[in-house]
Computed example of a mutant assay.
Amino acid sequence: MENDQFIFYYAGHGFFDSGYNKITTWDTHPYNLKDTTVSLNHVLMEPLRKSNCNKSLIFIDACASKIDEQLLSRDFIVDMNPSEFIEFVRSSNYRAMFLSCSRGEKSYGSSILGHGIWTHFLLKALKGEASEAIEQERFITSASLQNYLSKAVPDFIKLNTNIRGNQRPWAEVSI
Rank of each mutant, 00 (worst) to 15 (best):
A11M: 09
E132V: 02
Q5Y: 11
E46L: 12
V173D: 07
D75Y: 12
G114S: 10
L149K: 01
S142D: 15
S65A: 05
A62L: 05
D61Q: 07
E132Y: 09
E105F: 01
Y94H: 09
S144G: 02
I67H: 14
E84G: 08
S56G: 09
S83C: 08
F16G: 05
G19V: 12
A96Q: 10
D79M: 03
E172I: 12
E172F: 14
F121T: 00
R74L: 09
A152T: 01
G114N: 02
L126F: 04
S131G: 10
F8C: 14
L123R: 09
K22F: 02
Y9R: 02
Y94P: 08
K106S: 08
K151N: 02
M80P: 00
G104L: 01
L126P: 14
S102C: 09
I60Y: 03
H42D: 15
L71S: 05
I67M: 06
P47W: 07
P154T: 01
S18A: 15
E129T: 14
L72R: 15
E137F: 07
L57Q: 12
T37C: 13
S39V: 04
I67T: 15
A130Q: 15
K55C: 06
W26N: 03
F156S: 00
F85K: 09
D17E: 06
K34R: 14
Y94G: 04
P169R: 05
S65E: 11
S110C: 02
M45Q: 14
L57H: 11
P169A: 07
I140H: 01
L99P: 06
Y20F: 10
E137Q: 15
V89A: 03
T25C: 05
V153W: 00
H42I: 08
K55H: 15
S100D: 08
L126K: 11
